[in-house]
Design a protein around this nucleic acid. Structure first.
Lengths: 140, 140
DNA sequence: ATCCGTGCAAATCGTTTGCAAGGAT
DNA sequence: ATCCTTGCAAACGATTTGCACGGAT
């Protein structure tokens, strides 16, 4: 998915929900669509500001929460840090966080997914959502 | 491990670190040692207060953080809730949180543990710690 | 012309901290 | 007698919100 297509998808999702596309929001959608690195609200605010959009942090938060409600972005809350956001248009994945650099990698493992479902089922539950985070360090 | 043995272990760990055992701390250690349910700071504060110990919330936080530094309790930060605490004297386990009741269950799965290590190794990392949480709902 | 969205500053929530007084060693 | 701990209230950082004005539909 190209950045432009992604930005358009964001816009469409918001419009469908009756949310108006203002100058501030349009700028934010572009910044978000171009992000490949799980930025937090302040980073998005800074990028939008650097791009010349007059946006306030409150608007960043409000827009992010509208996008999350529409299901087009995901909010990830890792340990001891501000929430980070990512487009939801890729398939489900988990995260590996480099504790030294803060870098985030994504990974998928079907066997783990299946085992989780089995564990929940055994105890009479079904999984609503789950969170698997590996805090890692580069091997010497 | 009995509650008394656990409380004593907490006390020993603190003493070893040069931390003084005050009336407030002794009361908190007893409350913590008796907890089977992953309480948060405010619940511990309320239990200690109910037990007749004059303790302030600040002291609860300070004592919890001393215990965590000594490695005898673990702080668990689940989604959208205050941090919860549990004694660290049981073997490693992950958590299943009932989204309707807030109830927390523990589980262990060796296969998942092994898969996680493999995934990290494949990408040139070693795991420092990890977090696996299943947010679940009782099956109909 | 509607209402929704905006920026600002103040409010919130869980948690931490500076300070002067009190208690454990 | 040290020097750690306490309670209080103020500070904190991330996020949310009330308000009066401005802009998208």
């Amino acid at each position: 998915m190209t950045h432009e297509a992604r930005a358009l998808a964001f816009e469409t999702a918001l419009r469908r929900a009756g949310v108006r596309i203002t100058r501030q929001r349009a700028a934010l959608l572009r910044v978000l669509a171009a992000a490949e690195d799980h930025p937090d609200a302040i980073q998005l605010f800074q990028r939008a500001t650097a791009a010349g959009a007059g946006v306030s942090l409150a608007t960043v938060y409000r827009t992010l929460s509208a996008l999350e409600t529409q299901g087009v972005i995901l909010k990830q809350v890792f340990e001891g840090a501000a929430a980070r956001f990512e487009p939801a248009d890729t398939r489900h994945h988990d995260h590996m966080i480099d504790v030294d650099t803060g870098e985030v990698h994504e990974f998928v493992n079907e066997r783990i997914e299946r085992l989780q479902a089995e564990i929940a089922a055994e105890m009479g539950y079904e999984i609503v959502r789950h969170r698997l985070e590996l805090y890692v360090r580069r091997k010497p």
